[in-house]
């Protein structure tokens, strides 16, 4: 029998500010759509980030992925760039994209899919404990 397919999820956090605003719309229209989140100077969240990888369990180590490798990857590709930053201004992902929870989930997926490849299965971004964004939808 081939190795069991196991999903492993690891939870991280980062703190960042953002502003929901697009230059493609008028100030009034931005305020109508984004409300308080369009405030010019932005605001912040403690984001939760859960990353799920899946793959065969290695015979020798019993790992789907060495945890240190996953932690290093998420830190290098996402947390170092996002943590304690103003996403709109400091992170190129959002220079022309509104940093909503939806877009953050997609951009984090894109960043992690480079090093993790087919192993990457799911990204969950918690903006607050009430708002959660999963990508992709299965």
């Amino acid at each position: 029998m081939s190795a069991p397919l196991v999903h492993l999820s690891r939870c991280y956090s980062f703190s960042a500010s953002h502003r929901l605003y697009t230059d493609h719309l008028s100030f009034e229209k931005n305020e109508a759509i984004f409300g308080k989140c369009a405030n010019p100077n932005g605001h912040g969240h403690n984001y939760g980030l859960a990353v799920t990888v899946a793959g065969p369990v290695d015979d020798a180590t019993g790992y789907v992925i060495p945890l240190e490798e996953l932690d290093d990857t998420v830190r290098r590709y996402v947390l170092d760039a996002y943590d304690h930053r103003f996403l709109n201004v400091d992170v190129e992902d959002y220079f022309d994209l509104v940093p909503t929870g939806e877009n953050i989930a997609k951009r984090v997926w894109e960043r992690l899919s480079v090093p993790l490849g087919d192993k990457l299965r799911k990204v969950v971004v918690d903006e607050t404990r009430n708002n959660s964004f999963e990508y992709p939808v299965k």
Binding site: S2, A3, L5, V6, H7, P56
Partner: peptide
């Protein structure tokens, strides 16, 4: 945490 559905890789 890990999740397992009884699947083979």
């Amino acid at each position: 945490f890990v999740e397992y559905y009884g699947e083979a890789a």
